[in-house]
Design a protein around this nucleic acid. Structure first.
Length: 423
DNA sequence: TCTGGGGTCCTCAGACGA
DNA sequence: TCTGTCGTCTGAGGACCC
């Protein structure tokens, strides 16, 4: 039983979420190895069923490798709209327990149930009830960690997961509490790589200090740690290793950036084609920005060449904007400063410094002939007929369909006029 | 054999104004 | 007037997460 007055944080983690949703719609695949992810030559695994994991298939593994390890697996390309829809319903179930729900991704959330105890009882009992409710209402399984702080709850839910290895699938605890006072007993034997924020690079740096377990890290003076991994990370990790995590569960954090990037099936070498893709990605980003009623101030272009070398270039505008021509013009001028001779494997556009618009006087850019009217018309047409119903003239001529018999670009070469009209 | 796409946060260097 | 310092902003890159 959880002591009276102690904070209680739950971390709920859906089991193999993308795969589990696919199995809801295709129950005949249950019990089989199923993999969701990019199916093209450069795809990677986004989620794998526990049956597939038994063959060494895991997320972020190149799909080509996954196919070799488990040729009998069913490979699905993924339907993010569907996952979002199911995720929203699951999050709504959490919101019935407490208003303090912080989604981490589509398949994970923190819940602060400290204030729900009077009404709903013991936090561990609440965790069991959430698990049953997700199973009965959505047909999905999940694991729940219960602790006094966020990162311990997250580690606990991970420890409660089913496991898969060469000998098959082994069920987990489902719910795992780390009771107040028992934090360090749970934490200190864990390998250091399990700590949230320790990836391959930090792991290597800490190994140099002889650190193998979380307990090893906790025993070091904080200055030794900061000297090795930097001031902010060092202090943060050292606090975590001692079970200290003051972060609150914060619902409804607004997005700080919005972006789109794409890896092409084969490297692009034609600069005209690269410009076309840049316009398409910029257009997609602005559409999402406008759909959210937001404006952004910093435009970033990302390019990965044929040798997998990645560069980014960014520029901060005088004022935040949601105008397509302004974002596209900025992206174009950033791209113009980049070397495309090594081929383009990946291209991305993102907007940061994002937030709600503040009332300001319009600039001449915003008043460019047709700019506002064209943007609003695009939004309206897409809302009614779908995202593909209309696009920028400059995105024609690429791999996208231009209609029956349509020449790639009937209006001739695409001049960077900064006045992209809606077709 | 080939290494996604969506993000957040941190570090460092340089510019700039108080 | 010159110089050093400090805080802040910007841009690039990197580490990390799911």
């Amino acid at each position: 039983v959880w002591p009276e007055g102690a904070r209680a944080v739950l971390h709920v983690d859906m089991d193999a979420f993308f795969v589990a949703v696919e199995l809801l719609d295709r129950p005949e695949l249950r019990g089989q190895p199923v993999v969701v992810g990019g199916t093209g030559p450069r795809g990677v695994v986004a989620a794998a069923s526990y049956e597939a994991r038994a063959f060494g298939v895991h997320s972020a593994l190149p799909s080509a490798v996954a196919r070799r390890r488990c040729p009998q697996a069913v490979f699905l390309s993924g339907r993010h709209e569907r996952y979002r829809e199911v995720s929203a319903r699951v999050m709504a179930l959490f919101a019935e327990v407490t208003p303090l729900v912080e989604p981490l991704s589509l398949d994970e959330a923190f819940l602060d149930v400290t204030g729900a105890r009077r009404l709903l009882g013991d936090p561990v009992a609440i965790a069991h009830r959430i698990r049953e409710r997700v199973q009965t209402t959505e047909g999905l399984s999940c694991c729940v960690g219960v602790a006094t702080v966020k990162f311990l709850a997250k580690l606990a839910s991970a420890a409660a997961k089913p496991r898969a290895d060469g000998s098959g699938v082994h069920p987990g605890h489902g719910v795992l509490p780390v009771p107040p006072g028992g934090e360090l007993d749970f934490l200190h034997p864990l390998p250091i790589g399990r700590l949230w924020g320790v990836g391959p690079v930090t792991l290597e740096r800490l190994s140099g200090l002889g650190v193998r377990t979380v307990g090893d890290l906790a025993a070091l003076p904080v200055t030794v740690v900061t000297g090795r991994v930097g001031e902010a990370s060092g202090r943060h990790l050292h606090a975590l290793a001692n079970g200290i995590d003051p972060r609150a569960v914060v619902p409804d954090e607004p997005a700080r950036s919005i972006g789109h990037e794409e890896t092409f099936p084969s490297d692009l070498t034609d600069p005209q084609r690269v410009a076309t893709e840049l316009a398409r990605l910029s257009d997609a980003v602005v559409s999402r920005l406008r759909a959210g009623g937001l404006v952004g101030r910093t435009v970033t272009v990302k390019l990965r060449d044929g040798a997998f070398h990645t560069v980014t270039r960014s520029t901060t505008l005088d004022r935040a904007t949601d105008a397509r021509p302004v974002v596209l013009a900025a992206a174009r001028s950033l791209l113009a400063g980049l070397d495309l001779s090594g081929g383009v494997r990946l291209l991305g556009v993102s907007l940061s410094n994002v937030g709600p618009p503040v009332d300001e006087q319009l600039s001449f850019d915003d008043l460019a002939p047709g700019a506002i009217a064209a943007d609003e018309a695009l939004d309206l047409i897409r809302a009614r007929f779908g995202d593909d119903a209309i696009g920028l003239a400059s995105t024609l001529g690429g791999h996208r369909s231009v209609g029956p018999g349509g020449s790639p670009n009937p209006w001739g070469p695409d001049e960077p006029t900064g006045d992209e009209g809606a077709r």
